[in-house]
Design a protein around this nucleic acid. Sequence first.
DNA 1: CCTGCACAGTATCCATCGGATACTGGTTAC
DNA 2: GTAACCAGTATCCGATGGATACTGTGCAGG
Lengths: 116, 116
Amino acid sequence: MDTGDVFDPECPTRVVLDRIGDKWSVLVLLSLDGGPMRFTELRGRIGGVTPKVLTQTLRSMEQDGLLTREVFAEVPPRVEYTLTDLGRSLHGPLSVVAGWAERNVHEILRCREKFS
Amino acid sequence: MDTGDVFDPECPTRVVLDRIGDKWSVLVLLSLDGGPMRFTELRGRIGGVTPKVLTQTLRSMEQDGLLTREVFAEVPPRVEYTLTDLGRSLHGPLSVVAGWAERNVHEILRCREKFS
DNA sequence: CCTGCACAGTATCCATCGGATACTGGTTAC
DNA sequence: GTAACCAGTATCCGATGGATACTGTGCAGG
């Protein structure tokens, strides 16, 4: 099976990198790993995201097959977002990166100060 | 040692996620893992990057302590970019993500088509 | 002499995108 | 009747990314 090449601008792997690279996509995916969540739950969990951007993020991730969107005909309305297998398979790689970020944030901030 | 929390918008871990999330930063870091490179080499290796954006990327990564920039007083000018220990420590996490991207690009494209 | 090339970038312009703020619509509980 | 709940839209603006073109230094070749 042939795989993509991230260094080739013609390779669609680039679009995958864009999605993965999106800060909000990463946070949505990490959040949903604990199980399905509703729109407002996600908004609460992921501090600082605006509804418009969250909607865009969720729609893109749905298109890419990372999650599913299920609407329940209830009142008040309920919409649940659930990771697909593909989405779950991305959790491992991303949590490795998130862990690195959490461990190294101090070091990076120290470096930045030296430049100011 | 306390670590950051990626879900807190006040936590500086967010800025780290932004950097990591940047497509070009990822590609620069993966490229430099093979050893120091010059500006033009990087441009060649990383298809599709414009010089302006590459410069911005390199300057940011330098500020964050991920790489060093060394200017040699030669003719023609030579500038070498080298990963720091911090930068090298990020290679593992990122290559895991890049590997995922290369392996799953087909699946994602298939999902996209179903939405068109 | 002076033209051209190598290298490492700047300069300029424009389209797109992210983010802030405000608003919608159906239902039901008070 | 009016306020709240939920899941979003609508609108506007500044920042950012990308395309294209240009700069400056110094040597090598004709």
